[in-house]
Design a protein around this nucleic acid. Structure first.
Lengths: 275, 275
DNA sequence: CTAATAGTGTCTATTAGACAGTATGTT
DNA sequence: AACATACTGTCTAATAGACACTATTAG
């Protein structure tokens, strides 16, 4: 086993890449955005919601089920470049916020063969797409709530299909990993993608508190109430106006533009203040 | 490309796993622990420090350099099981805290071939090992400090060898990923392991504030000052005694045992209070 | 005018930071 | 007694939570 070579070059020349059986890698991308639910009272504000882009599979495995956008990592492509390539293909936009989330590598997570998948989370302002989506993809509104016993229910809805699943968060005493999830119920989402989505939602919930990533999902100009609603929907709780404004005030700058056409006092528009 | 099959079974039977060229995966493990530096004044307390276990490579590539313990992921092994197997081999202990850190997958990160590596972070109380280490591995004390311009200097020292490296944290406007690092200087550490170590230190620094993971590095019984010193060395700053005690008091329980043999007032010993 | 929301002032409660004091072992 | 550290009391500063008040628009 420990063959003896006189130099690194010689070693590399003789290296057998098949000493360990090789595997395939894919990447799955959580593309999160914010949606607005229209209300039929002209006075009332729209309701904000999180949404996620899913793709309908037109091929086996999991034919006709929904799944996260993704694909194989090419052999001559940096791991990080795979999600960028797919994101570009899917949205036709280059500069999208993207961060690595977690790598899922259970033996049987893919029925085809051994495939390890590194998931990424992308945040985008949906309006930048101008409905410029590939035909088999669709935005799903996200509703999620935590029941007792560390069970999380997630509902995805694109007005035609509703996808529901439940996941139990496993808290082991020692090898405690945040993303150790067990899928309890799942109808229509392919692979282990329910776990990936939950991992993403938890990352988002966590990072929104100590980073500025929300602004990647906001348009250039927004009201503070809109921003607050995005925080609220991600954190799953109401925030008090004065407290929220105290926290956010250093991150945004007021413009002299205002909303119009609302049946109530109009709000100033703000933009993200890069530091 | 879109072959037509009448069923998922038929599709799987005909699936060609070589449609995409396959690659190898490895895992690298950051095994963190706490060390104590003896002082030659009988009155003074020992100084605590973080330490990390490194292995001297006895084979190419990077022969005779130090690296993180790790190895190839087997084709019939869950991704998470690879670090567990290696950790068991390295320490002969089963129940070690372990969490996935990040997956590094640049094309040329390994001179042998295309290898993607998922790194894990393990936390252990060094005393559980009873110096039961494999002969080519060694604990290195960690010193790190952040210079200006997002440059971090890290020094690893095992009293025989000193390993120094500098890393620049890249903050890109859009695709901002925490672990986008550029290695500026590096003498003696193999592969991209400097980046892996920095990623681990940052994760630790972050998670110590909102989780109880520190206790995985502590012995069963410890003084509050020892615990405080571990916090201080991970966070890189001094903490005030009363403030620290206020925060920690709910997580520990006082025993009726005390230290002995110190040239000053002895401290009560505490243990972690699992909730 | 009214409904609905925007935006602010201020009081209180909680938490964090700072410092000084008292307590207690070994040599 | 002297040293070094353990541990606590308390004051102050900063932050978070709560509520109420004023402001402003479309219809």
């Amino acid at each position: 086993m420990n063959d003896i070579y006189s130099s690194e070059d010689e070693f590399l020349k003789n290296y057998d890449p098949n000493k360990y059986e090789r595997l395939s890698m894919t990447t799955d991308i959580l593309i999160f955005s914010v949606s607005s639910k229209h209300t039929y009272n002209y006075r009332k504000n729209e309701k904000k919601n999180m949404s996620i882009l899913l793709v309908k599979r037109d091929n086996y495995p999991f034919k006709d089920k929904w799944c996260l956008p993704g694909g194989f990592v090419n052999i001559d492509e940096n791991l990080d470049d795979a999600p960028k390539r797919i994101l570009k293909k899917e949205t036709n936009i280059d500069d999208i916020y993207l961060e690595q989330l977690y790598t899922f590598g259970d033996i049987n997570r893919d029925p085809r063969m051994r495939i390890v998948s590194t998931s990424y989370m992308a945040l985008i302002d949906k309006n930048r797409l101008h409905n410029n989506l590939s035909p088999n993809s669709s935005w799903f509104d996200i509703t999620f709530y935590e029941e007792k016993n560390n069970i999380v229910s997630i509902i995805l809805d694109n007005k035609n299909d509703v996808i529901k699943f439940k996941i139990k968060k496993l808290l082991r005493e020692k090898t405690t990993d945040r993303y150790s999830f067990k899928i309890l119920e799942n109808d229509n989402l392919a692979f282990d993608h329910p776990s990936v989505i939950l991992a993403g939602l938890e990352r988002l919930k966590n990072k929104i508190e100590y980073t500025d990533i929300v602004f990647n999902m906001m348009p250039d100009l927004f009201t503070l109430k809109e921003l607050q609603q995005v925080y609220e929907v991600i954190l799953g709780k109401k925030l008090l106006d004065p407290a929220f404004r105290r926290i956010i005030v250093d991150k945004v700058e007021k413009t002299n533009q205002m909303e119009t056409g609302k049946g109530h006092r109009p709000s100033y528009l703000f933009r993200y203040k890069h530091k």
